[in-house]
Amino acid sequence: MSHSVKRGKSRFEQFRMIVPEDVREVIGKTAWTESLRTTDPFVAREKRAELIIRCTAEIRQAREGIVDRAKADAIVLLDRAFSLLAQARGTMDRAVQLPLQLLGSFVLDSWVGTGRDMGAQWWGDFLVREPVTSDEAIPSFDNERERAMYRLRANLVEGRGIADGLVYQELAAILLDRRVFHPIWCVVSYMRSLEPRLPLAPDATYEVVAEAFLRRLAEYRFESWPENVADALAPLGRGAAPVLTSRPQPAPVEMRYQGLLAMRLSEGLQYWIDQRRPGESAVNEARRGVARYIALFGDVIIGTINRAQVNRPGFVGGSNS
């Protein structure tokens, strides 16, 4: 608020504008005061307008500086949270693997959890989010076929203790590239269980934290992975894809197969899950079996599968399994 006042016996009006409380520490005063040094009311009005513009700009700059410092401080606290997690889990590799696993599980669950009440989100004794309903799948892959193949890759690689985090790093990179921040609030908020001072509001600060969070996950270079594992598993990793001349290739589509028999095996698996809605243990077992079959024979047309392939020794369901 600004106005003009008379001071003592002075012939001139004096400009006065209160400094907002949120920037007083930065600006260093509670109000601006300055003589307008004129008795002409029209000149006084022009000078007062100029002073208002100048003071308003100073307020804006002070607030921008406060926001910038808050964002910088938030990044420091995020890195502190990662350091605390590394101390708790023994290595930074394991510290990064944990939020990667949380991210992967949360995103994959969202693909099949549309309309499901996700409930309150707790990290230990720390409530980080009120109950929410998952109305939409978190944006990442563009169609169900891509999602199905990604799930297959995650089942093959993640949780084996060899290169945990490799597939989920790919997901973090996609979310970072697409700037998908708010849908993963729950995962980012896990870091507050380690560093409660980490700010996730207002939105501008949260987006900075979420972007830094995803960047640290996507760009981290693991030390515990076997040498050249990323190249060996490309295109899951970032290396050049190796030439796999011995891997069986999917059989070409044969027109004589119709309906379910014309589907690829990975598509048939997802169709079975969507239509039958089996229990979690049944889904996991089916995915493991299909993953092994595809590794041996490729993602073939269902109608081309024969008994000899299913009974092959070493395959799930085979004579030596």
Rank of each mutant, 00 (worst) to 15 (best):
S105K: 05
P131A: 00
L171I: 10
D142R: 13
I174Y: 01
Y168N: 12
S110L: 00
V112T: 15
F141M: 02
L100F: 06
S105M: 02
G115V: 08
E130T: 05
A120L: 07
I138Q: 08
L156N: 09
L166A: 01
V96I: 15
G124M: 06
R178L: 07
S140L: 04
E144N: 14
L98S: 01
G113V: 03
N143P: 03
V128F: 01
E144I: 14
V112L: 07
G124R: 11
R145F: 06
T114P: 00
D135T: 03
V112F: 06
P131E: 00
P183E: 01
P183H: 01
T133Y: 01
M92A: 04
I162T: 09
V96S: 05
W123V: 15
L103M: 05
Q169P: 15
V107Y: 00
I162F: 02
D135W: 00
M149W: 06
L108N: 07
D177Q: 14
P131Q: 00
L166H: 01
D125K: 14
R179I: 01
Q97M: 06
A163N: 10
I174H: 02
G119Y: 04
G119A: 11
G159P: 15
H182K: 11
L156E: 12
L103T: 07
Q169Y: 06
L100S: 10
D135S: 02
V112E: 12
R151N: 09
F126E: 08
W111A: 08
L98C: 01
N143Y: 02
L127T: 09
T133D: 01
R116P: 04
I138L: 07
G165S: 07
R178W: 02
Q121D: 13
L176E: 10
E146S: 15
D164T: 14
Y150D: 09
G124K: 11
D117G: 03
L127E: 11
P183I: 00
P139G: 05
